[in-house]
């Protein structure tokens, strides 16, 4: 019973983290993209437009929820929930500190990616149930993207797993605290993971599911008010979880080089969030500076370039590590 209460408390904290991040990422996106396009972004309400969030949220809540006649009713209503729940659950696996991790299974990395890859199913349900041509095409593209980029994503995540000898996110962080950040020895993996994360979260150079120029608003064309709000909240949450995963796998997570992990204490979450927002800032700069891929180029990039490159690089890294193990510089754990 006490266990359940504690678990519900964790989940409540997860929701709060998700909402605060969602709100902040919306503001940051407007500001960063605005400055990237030589505009100012929001300036009117509050210091530097920061209070713009409040009327935005109120507006989402009080907008009329338009429900078109032709939709598949149950699936249409269910789709925002299918999108929202797994993107919230992914927050459970991020280690924020020594003890500050909600769920810490041995295969934490794989489970987190598994929950994140349920999201395209919800997006597909939304597009299919809308009975709208743009929404359906957007949904099909979203699935096409998910199947093209999940494999390079998982293969790129293999490098930290090999180096640390564990698929548990906390262990990976500890392994980096004792050595170097994995972005240095496996830079190609980090770059490919970054690209695939950008695709998995449907961000602009690869936002096939909602290419505004060609598909109105893609899968979310027929959604309005809070249903739309939940879709977008999940997208920003996915943004944060993917960035936090990059920070954990390649940038040392909640630790700092040269600082004993045991003494990090409350600075752990602060360090992780700063690193995560640094990665999100990189996402946004890519968003602001590159034009969209065509849909056939998009699939070809995944299958013809990223998969052979990541597989080859992973094997090369394995050979190097094996040689290092023979010399006695690496591995040998029981």
């Amino acid at each position: 019973m006490a266990m359940w209460l504690k678990a519900l408390l964790f989940a409540l904290v997860g929701i709060v983290v998700m909402l605060v991040n969602g709100a902040f990422i919306i503001y940051m996106l407007r500001k960063v993209l605005g400055h990237a396009h030589l505009r100012l972004g929001p300036t009117e309400l509050g210091p530097a437009g920061l209070a713009q969030l409040i009327p935005d949220i109120l507006k989402l809540l009080t907008k009329e929820d338009r429900h078109p006649n032709q939709t598949d009713k149950w699936l249409y209503c269910l789709a925002p929930i299918i999108v929202f729940v797994p993107s919230l659950t992914a927050f459970a696996f991020i280690p924020y500190g020594e003890k500050l991790v909600a769920a810490n299974p041995n295969l934490g990395l794989l489970m987190m990616i598994a929950f994140l890859s349920v999201v395209p199913i919800g997006i597909f349900a939304a597009g299919w149930a809308s009975r709208n041509k743009y929404a359906l095409i957007g949904a099909m593209r979203s699935v096409g993207g998910a199947i093209s980029y999940e494999i390079p994503l998982l293969l790129a995540a293999l490098a930290p797993v090999m180096l640390s000898g564990s698929a548990n996110l906390s262990d990976i962080v500890h392994a980096q605290a004792g050595g170097i950040w994995y972005i240095l020895p496996c830079l190609p993996s980090a770059v490919i993971f970054f690209l695939c994360a950008q695709m998995e979260t449907n961000q602009t150079p690869f936002d096939m599911a909602e290419a505004e120029g060609e598909l109105v608003a893609g899968f979310s064309t027929e959604y309005s008010a809070m249903r739309f709000g939940f879709m977008y909240l999940s997208e920003f949450a996915g943004n944060f979880t993917m960035a936090a995963l990059i920070a954990t796998l390649f940038l040392g997570g909640w630790t700092l080089p040269g600082v004993d992990p045991a003494t990090m204490g409350v600075f752990g979450p602060v360090v992780l969030v700063l690193k995560t927002y640094l990665v999100i800032f990189c996402f946004m700069m890519v968003r602001g500076n590159f034009s969209r891929y065509r849909v056939d180029q998009y699939a070809a990039l995944g299958w013809k370039k990223l998969i052979p490159i990541t597989l080859g690089w992973t094997l090369l890294l394995a050979v190097i590590l094996k040689v290092l193990q023979m010399v006695g510089l690496w591995g040998g754990w029981s």
């Binding site: 359940w4 678990a7 997860g14 809540l61 009329e64 919230l88």
Partner: peptide, 26 residues
């Protein structure tokens, strides 16, 4: 248990948000 709590509370929160919108919007 923690993952189950996230799933349950997530679904409950989504339903809460949608019903708030249903109550507040014209």
């Amino acid at each position: 248990i923690i993952i189950a709590a996230f799933l349950i509370l997530g679904a409950a929160f989504a339903l809460f948000g949608l019903s708030m919108s249903w109550l507040l919007s014209p």
